[in-house]
Structure formats: structure tokens, C-alpha cells
Design a protein around this nucleic acid. Structure first.
Length: 900
RNA sequence: GGGCGGCUAGCUCAGUAGGUUAGAGCAACUGCUUUACACGCAGUAGGUCACAGGUUCGAGUCCUGUGCCGCCCACCA
């Protein structure tokens, strides 16, 4: 008999078992053709990242799915890895260098990258180590990183292939420029923020008509030196006769044309729009249409350049104020008004982005239609489904992707330009993974690729694509397409959609368009589960500045990895954000303690630890009572419900099922009602306990791996040298088949429930008679169905802790209450005290009152001819039965009331 | 401007073909140190299902509209 401590202490077992699992290679990838495969790829966290609450939820879910798959007989692989995290990593390293007084540009590209790699190798990937504390079962022998040599070949191959296939081009375009990071960004990296700024109304004098002017409304007076025209809507009567004339651009009195263009809204501002092609997307398009000059007035860092005149080198926002003031001074400012508008922000720099004309690499997305088909036709399923719409909408409006970044940290674009030649002529380009043979005659493009351009090949890049031998070795053919992707909806465009597109393009030969069958063969994953965001208990996002984000490792330390995992899953509603409250993690810990003590109780009884299989345990069962039938049937139902919920990713519901079965059905009822048998050493009853505990541990293992492993061994269910996670968990149907010799009776479920109700009635009765010592009380029962007397065994007397339970077939004075099974009395000697009668009267009056309401409801229904005519028969019969039963109950209670 | 989600007990959420009396956990309150567990046990109380219409014999559930709260998308300066 093992001895367990009274309270579960996670610290004592977590590191021990994690070490055991690793040394026994439990998480290794196994290509086993005899088993179905199951694969999850971790959404690679930033190599600079540290564990936060979002990771905790996300990785708990993935581990749950992986372990659940193992228990379902699949060969499960969870691939871990990190992302090189372009900008944030570069900024990080720049800061480190700055501490030592070193400037990135001073030491040059190669030295910088050396520093960066060293920093990454020393400090990066901490998060993967932290994750182990959570118990995650990743294939740690194969950690992937997007900047690994092998993976990088995949990234560059993707670029080269797309270029060769005509999807990648270089061009001078309007891009989103971050003046802090000094790089272009993709549209997806721009966050729109509502801001209160000012709308300035400025006079633009008409050159041909001195004294007359056009009023122009603008939020950006600092770009006035870049104005090259004033545009009005061609149908705008106010300005019709001005089109073709010229304005004087304020501050310089340069003549600029007044033009007409449909893009101008008549009803906004003054209806006249200043055109600054270098600093606005719309203006750029108008400028191109009308063949206008492009005057760039800003430096890359957001200060004004030489066109800014006296404001040269001033920051754009300072210049805005200064120029507005100047306009006021020279009488060209009509008014300025408060104005709320949407401004695009760079997530990284946390400053407004600047639309900027620059030379960049762009990708025209391939396989857009196929990517829609994959999700619309359900080849890839989204959970919750509503994200499908968002995904499709994005694909419907997809824009070319700016993939070049003006950084050093990342995959350098595999394009070489012949030295001293026209860079804009593609004849002078060399584009390949390995570069030209005569490197000395070429210079490589300075830019790197967007980080997401590397992570979009993750689903096959981690298997060694495009190296066919590596892919075979890594089990690509076995594990691909992967099964589940668990991620946040915030990266549905950044990552999820792009992975789908990349897989459709690169898996299989070059082909376009694809048939639906080919789409099926190329998808990267089958299911995408979108988690919610973890917020604090007030619903606010977790942030450093609010200080409302708990430290995950501290939580694991405090509540145990298992308690943390279960607590988190219990409060993570399907498809909604999680309101995190540390107190609620207590529930997870408490559950673990309850489980611990249930096992402890079992181990305090007689043990027979030779039974490691369910079949052996079942063979040991004899003398089944109704309660035994019921608990086994409930066990089967629990497993069936869990599997149904898991199939739909309704994790919280699955937890609720097992929680309810284990705590309510098993601990609160079955353990108590069978206690006297177990403590009396009845072998059959012990076997039932073992059957239930064994299955409970198996069902819970994917959720709480550490404690279940510990108890699995402690209870003696483990085969020599084996682990609980190596076991298959029997399905509900398996269980039914194995239980077949026991001839379980459905009827027992009802019987057990009635027995429980009976006990509840008696408890109420005892509560109403607190003045009488329970040890003296006799309960007397007049059962409706005399054949059920056998149900009232010693167990009920033990549960109630009363003197005895006796049966009668007569009506006695002073009945206590009426249950489903019959009339219940306390023995008259102890029941005579008058003070016990009043609460009983009150209780009965209340019950009668409630019954009367129900009777009235059903009576009305039955008297309603429409109801009787139109409602289905079973509903009518139900109403009638209810009516009759309740009337009978009420009559009986009234009789009792009279006798009191 | 377009779209999506939420609104059910004090709190967090279930409510899955419209059909008995709307559920659970937590919190609250009452009682209990009973030999697995006080990280526990046994109870009690608590809800005009956001609002207004409609369909139906019957609506938390279906339809229409409104209101809050949150999110996503969108080139009106």
C-alpha cells in the first residue's frame, strides 16, 4: 500500500516525471505506418520572447490535443521552434550594442549579424525552456528556427520559385513607411488608430484671378511644399469654372494646376483636395493619372527635407504646428477645427506610419481562388466557424504584399545586381538561392525579407523542404498535411492565410489553377482552432503598462502545472476571450487535490495491484449492486460526451463532463454509498473503484499529465516501465464491449437516482430536526414499490449516520415527506417534539405552492383547444402526466399537512 | 461606411433540431472538523433570458427592428 501525502504537492512530482518522459523518448517523432498520424506545428514564438499568458493558454491547448491524440492510438508529433522576429530582434540587439556605445552602422552588416546570432544563441529561445514547466510534449530533438541554414534555403527557394513563376516583382510604389524602424511595412502591419487632430482650412490663391481663392481642408499642412495640384470633383458646380486655372501654393507661391477628378468627395471639407503625390496613396494615384510631378518633402526619419525650406530638418509633427502658425501669420489660415480621424500606426515603432514612395519587392499572391476553396469547401475547417468569413473577405480584397524590409536581421533577398549597371533593368539581375558563381561582379540586394515571408512556409519548411531526402527522413509524407493549428485570430492574415497559400503553391508541382482534389492534397492543416485573447478580470487586455499580467511561471509554481492547465481550460470559453482571474485557477488546483485524495482513499483500502488491464479488472468484479451498474454506465457516458466535445474543440465542456462525473457522480455519491463495502474489503466493489479510477486517470491525462502519471503508478495501473501516456484510452464503445459480461442495466441509473433523492429527503428531515441526535433517529419508509426495499441497504443508513432504517407497509401518524419512492417517516418517539413541526409545515406549504403553479400551467395548456389540436401527442401526454402527478403529490402533501 | 461577436443568477459561462419547472461553477448565506479530501461535505437563496415587435398551440432558442459593449475591415483629405 503506497502512502500519499494528505495534500497534493505538485513540486514533488513535476520535474521528476518530465525528466522520465524525456529520458524515455516519449515525445519523439515516430513514423509508424500501422498508426494514424497526428501532427501539430507550434506557432513559432519570437526568439526574443518570454512566456506570457497567451502562450500559456495556446500551448496548454496544443499539448492537450497532442496527448489526447496519443491516447486515441495515433502517432503524435508536436514540432517546436522559434521565429527570428525581424524588427523586434534587430531592435533588441541594437539596444544591447548601444549599451556598449556601439552603433550598428559603424560596425557594419557582418559584424552586426555576428553579434545578433551570438545574442540569439545565448539569450534567445528562453520561451521554449519555460514551456517545459507547463509539461508540453514537444519533439525537443527537432527544434526549428526560421533562420536555420536548412530552413533558410526553403525561404529563399520560395522567393526564387515565385519570381520564376512571375509572382514577385520590384517596383517603386507607395508603401507604409515606419520612420522609427526606417523600413517599409506590409498593409497588415499597420494598425488603424482613431486620433483627435486638427483639420486646417487653408486659402490657395487663384493665380489668374488675384484676390480670389479656393479653400482647402487638410490635416497635414506640413506637406504643403509637396502639393502639385488642387483637385475638385468634376461635377462640383462651385468649382466648375476654375478647373484648368492655377492656384498659388502657399509658402512658395508656386503655380499649381486646378484639376478635376472623381476621387474627390464633394461633400467633405471644402470639396477641394490638395494633391501631394509623394505623401498620400490617393494623391499618388491622382498624380499618376494626371501626370503630375512628385515632390517628396520628408526624409526617411520623418523630418522635413530641403523642400521644407525654413522647416528643414524639423520633425513632421512639429513642422505641422509651425507651418499652421505661419499660415495664420500670413493670413492664409481660414480656421482650424478639432477633427477625429483614423491614422495608421506602425505596431513596432508605435508612431504614425508615413505613406512613402520607395523601391520595394512585392508579391502578387498565387492560389487565391484555391485558398478560398480550401476553407469554403471545408477541406480546412475553422473553429469557431465564423472566422471563415473574415478569412474569405480578406482574400476577396487581397493586395500585393510588400515583402522587402530595410533591415539586416533576416533572410537577405536572393537577388544580385551586376555591378555598375542599371539596377532597374532586370537583365542585370541574378536571382537564385546560392547566388552567382562570380560573386565579385555582383552586389546583393541590401534588404531582407519580411519575417512572415519565412513563417508562411512553416508547415513544410520544418520538414526540410525543398530537400526531398530530408523531407522523407523527417516524415513529411506521413505527417503532412498536419492536423490542428492552434493560434490567435489576430494572425489570421499574417500567418494562417499565407500558410495556406504557400502550401497550395509549393506542395506538388507547379500548376495553376488547381482542381478541388489537388487542393485537398496540398493543404497544410485540416483544422484551425482560434483561441481567445486572455484579458484581466475587468476585460482589459494584458499589458505591461497596466501591470495586470500575471507571471506565468509564478502561477505554475503556485498552483502546479496541472492546476494551472486545468484552471485555465475551465475558464476559456469556446471562441471567446478569456477573463483571467487568479482565484479561478484555484479551482484547477482544488480539482487536482480532489483527484489526489480519491486515489489516496482507494490506496487506504485493500489492494490487489496485479491488475493493469481493464479486462483483468472487469474479470474481478462480482455481486454488482444497482449503484455499481449506474457508476459504470455513467463512466461510459462521460467518455462519450468528452469525445463528442473534443471533436468540436469544446474544451471547457469536456472538462465540465469529467469534472461532473468524477466529483459529483463518483466522489460525492458512489464513493460514499459504496464505502461500507469497500471498507469491508468486498473485492468486487474494490474492482469497480479501480475501473473508475483507471479510466478517470486516462481521461484526465491529456489535461493534467503530471498528477495522472503519478497516480497511475501509485495505484498500480502501470505496466512495468511504461507511462500512462503510452496507453490507449478506451472509447465509450470499447468500454461497453468490455463491460458486456457485467450485463449492465440501464434501469439502474434511475434506481440510483431515486436512492439519491431518498437520501436527500432524509437529510432535509434531519436538518429540520437538528435538536435530535442523529444517532438516535430511526427512519421508517413506506415504499410505493415494495420490491425496491433491497435498494435501502446498510449504505443509506451509513450515509445518513442514523440509527436505522426500517420498512413498513402501513400509514403511520406524522409522515415527514413524500418522495418519488414513497412516504418517509421519522420514528414517532424522536419525532414528537413540537418545535420540529413548524419548519416542516413551512416547507410543505412552499412545496404545495410550487406544485399549484405547475398544475395551473399544465391545466391551462390542456384546456387550450389549440394546444390539444396542434401540439404533438407526446408533448400533450407529457403535460397530462405532469398535471396528474403533481395533483397527486399535492394531495398527498395536503394530507400530511393536515396530520401535522 | 461594411462586417462579426457579446448581452441569461452578484461574477464567469452552458443552454446544441422551438416542447416538462432556464442549468453549472465561483461568490453569498446556513450547518458540519463524519477516519480520502476544509484545496472538503451537506444544504439555502438568487434570473421580467438587453429592449420592442412578429411567427407559433408554445420562443432564452426562429424572423424584423432598436440599444449598449467589444473586435475586424475600409484611400474621404
Amino acid at each position: 500500500m503506497s502512502k500519499l501525502a494528505k495534500t497534493f504537492s505538485p513540486k514533488d512530482i513535476e520535474d521528476k516525471w518530465y525528466g522520465e518522459w524525456l529520458s524515455h523518448n516519449c515525445f519523439d517523432r515516430v513514423i509508424d505506418p500501422a498508426k494514424p498520424s497526428f501532427c501539430i506545428l507550434i506557432p513559432p514564438p519570437n526568439v526574443t520572447g518570454v512566456l506570457h499568458m497567451g502562450h500559456l493558454l495556446n500551448n496548454t491547448l496544443q499539448d492537450l490535443l497532442i496527448r489526447y491524440a496519443r491516447h486515441s492510438g495515433k502517432s503524435a508529433l508536436w514540432v517546436p521552434g522559434t521565429d527570428h522576429a525581424g524588427i523586434s530582434m534587430q531592435v533588441r540587439v541594437e539596444k544591447e550594442l548601444a549599451k556598449k556605445g556601439v552603433d550598428r552602422k559603424a560596425i557594419g552588416r557582418e559584424n552586426f549579424l555576428e553579434h545578433a546570432c551570438r545574442w540569439r544563441d545565448e539569450h534567445g529561445g528562453i520561451i521554449l525552456k519555460q514551456l517545459r514547466k507547463l509539461g508540453v510534449s514537444c519533439d525537443w530533438k527537432n527544434i526549428k528556427h526560421t533562420l536555420d541554414a536548412e530552413y533558410s534555403r526553403g525561404v529563399l527557394t520560395a522567393f526564387v520559385k515565385l519570381y520564376d513563376r512571375g509572382y514577385i516583382y520590384r517596383g517603386k510604389r507607395m508603401v507604409n513607411w515606419c520612420p522609427v524602424s526606417l523600413t517599409a511595412l506590409s498593409d497588415e502591419e499597420v494598425k488603424v488608430v482613431q486620433q483627435t487632430g486638427k483639420l486646417y482650412h487653408v486659402k490657395y490663391g487663384i493665380a489668374e484671378r488675384p484676390g480670389e481663392y479656393i479653400a482647402v481642408a487638410t490635416t497635414r499642412p506640413e506637406t504643403i511644399p509637396g502639393d502639385v495640384a488642387i483637385a475638385v470633383n468634376p461635377t462640383d458646380g462651385r468649382y466648375k469654372n476654375l478647373v484648368g486655372l492655377h492656384c498659388l501654393r502657399p509658402l512658395s507661391d508656386t503655380k499649381i494646376p486646378i484639376i478635376a477628378d472623381e476621387a474627390v468627395a464633394k461633400d467633405f471639407g471644402t470639396g477641394a483636395l490638395k494633391i501631394t503625390p509623394a505623401h498620400d496613396k490617393v494623391d499618388f494615384e491622382i498624380g499618376r493619372k494626371h501626370n503630375l510631378e512628385i515632390i517628396n518633402v520628408l526624409n526617411p526619419d520623418g523630418t522635413l527635407n530641403e523642400h521644407g525650406g525654413e522647416w528643414c530638418a524639423m520633425d513632421r509633427f512639429d513642422a505641422r504646428v509651425a507651418i499652421a502658425r505661419k499660415l495664420g501669420e500670413i493670413g492664409l489660415l481660414i480656421k482650424e477645427e478639432e477633427y477625429v480621424n483614423n491614422v495608421g500606426f506602425s505596431e513596432r515603432g508605435n508612431v504614425p506610419i508615413e505613406p512613402r514612395l520607395s523601391e520595394q519587392w512585392f508579391l502578387r499572391y498565387p492560389k487565391i481562388e484555391e485558398a478560398k476553396i480550401a476553407v469554403r469547401n471545408g477541406l480546412i475547417k475553422f473553429f469557431p466557424e465564423r472566422w471563415t468569413k473574415i478569412y474569405l473577405h480578406w482574400l476577396d480584397n487581397i493586395q500585393d504584399w510588400c515583402i522587402s524590409r530595410q533591415l539586416w536581421w533576416g533572410h537577405r533577398i536572393p537577388v544580385w545586381y551586376r555591378k555598375n549597371s542599371d539596377k532597374n533593368d532586370s537583365k542585370n539581375w541574378h536571382i537564385s538561392v546560392d547566388g552567382p558563381m562570380d560573386k565579385e561582379n555582383w552586389e546583393q540586394d541590401e534588404d531582407v525579407l519580411d519575417t512572415w515571408f519565412s513563417s508562411w512556409i512553416w508547415p513544410f519548411g520544418v520538414f526540410g523542404w525543398p530537400d526531398r531526402n530530408k523531407m522523407i527522413e523527417n516524415g513529411f509524407d506521413y505527417f503532412f498535411p498536419t492536423d490542428d493549428l492552434v493560434t490567435g485570430p489576430d494572425i489570421i492574415f499574417f500567418w494562417v492565410a499565407r500558410m495556406i497559400i504557400a502550401s497550395l503553391e509549393f506542395i506538388g508541382g507547379e500548376k495553376s489553377p488547381l482542381t478541388p482534389d489537388e487542393v485537398r492534397d496540398r493543404i497544410p492543416f485540416k483544422n484551425v482552432y482560434f483561441t481567445g485573447i486572455i484579458r484581466d478580470s475587468l476585460g482589459r487586455k494584458m499589458s505591461k503598462s497596466l501591470g495586470n499580467s500575471p507571471e506565468p511561471l509564478y502561477l505554475i509554481e503556485k498552483y502546479g502545472a496541472d492546476g494551472m492547465r486545468l484552471g485555465l481550460l475551465m475558464i476559456a470559453p469556446y471562441g471567446q476571450d478569456v477573463l483571467f482571474d487568479e482565484e479561478r485557477i484555484l479551482q484547477g488546483r482544488n480539482f487536482c487535490n480532489k483527484l489526489w485524495n480519491a486515489a489516496r482513499f482507494r490506496l487506504m483500502q485493500q489492494s490487489d495491484h496485479s491488475k493493469t488491464s481493464l479486462q483483468e479488472l472487469v474479470a474481478g468484479v462480482n455481486n454488482l449492486e444497482s449503484d455499481d451498474h449506474a457508476i459504470l454506465l455513467q463512466l461510459v457516458k462521460c467518455k462519450r460526451d468528452i469525445d463528442a466535445h473534443m471533436a468540436k474543440y469544446e474544451i471547457t465542456s469536456a472538462v465540465q463532463c469529467i469534472h461532473n462525473f468524477f466529483w459529483n457522480s463518483y466522489c460525492d455519491w458512489y464513493v460514499e454509498v459504496s464505502k461500507h463495502r469497500v471498507q469491508g474489503g468486498e473485492r468486487g466493489a474494490l474492482m469497480i473503484h479501480d475501473i473508475v479510477m483507471r479510466q478517470v486517470l486516462l481521461m484526465l491525462n491529456p489535461f493534467i499529465p503530471f498528477i495522472t502519471e503519478e497516480l497511475w503508478h501509485a495505484c498500480g495501473y502501470a505496466k512495468e516501465g511504461s507511462f500512462i501516456q503510452c496507453e490507449c484510452c478506451e472509447t465509450a464503445d470499447d468500454l461497453l464491449a468490455i463491460f458486456k459480461p457485467l450485463k449492465l442495466k440501464e434501469q439502474s441509473l434511475l434506481e440510483a437516482e431515486q436512492k439519491r433523492n431518498f437520501v436527500n429527503f432524509c437529510r432535509l428531515l434531519l436538518a429540520q430536526n437538528k435538536h435530535i441526535s442523529k444517532k438516535l433517529v430511526k427512519i421508517i419508509v413506506n415504499l410505493r414499490d415494495k420490491s425496491e426495499c433491497k435498494l435501502f441497504s446498510e449504505s443509506v443508513q451509513k450515509i445518513l449516520a442514523v440509527n436505522s432504517i426500517e420498512f413498513t407497509d402501513r400509514e403511520l401518524p406524522l409522515p415527514a415527506t413524500i418522495g418519488d419512492m414513497g412516504t418517509i417517516y421519522m420514528d414517532t418517539a424522536s419525532d414528537a417534539a413540537a418545535e420540529s413541526l413548524q419548519p416542516r409545515r413551512d416547507k410543505i406549504l412552499k412545496e404545495i405552492d410550487e406544485l399549484s403553479k405547475l398544475i395551473a400551467i399544465n391545466e391551462n395548456k390542456l384546456n387550450d383547444t389549440n394546444f390539444v389540436k396542434k401540439a404533438p401527442k407526446n408533448v400533450i401526454a407529457g403535460a397530462r402526466k405532469l398535471f396528474e402527478d403533481n395533483v397527486a403529490k399535492r394531495d398527498a402533501l395536503e394530507k400530511i399537512l393536515a396530520s401535522l
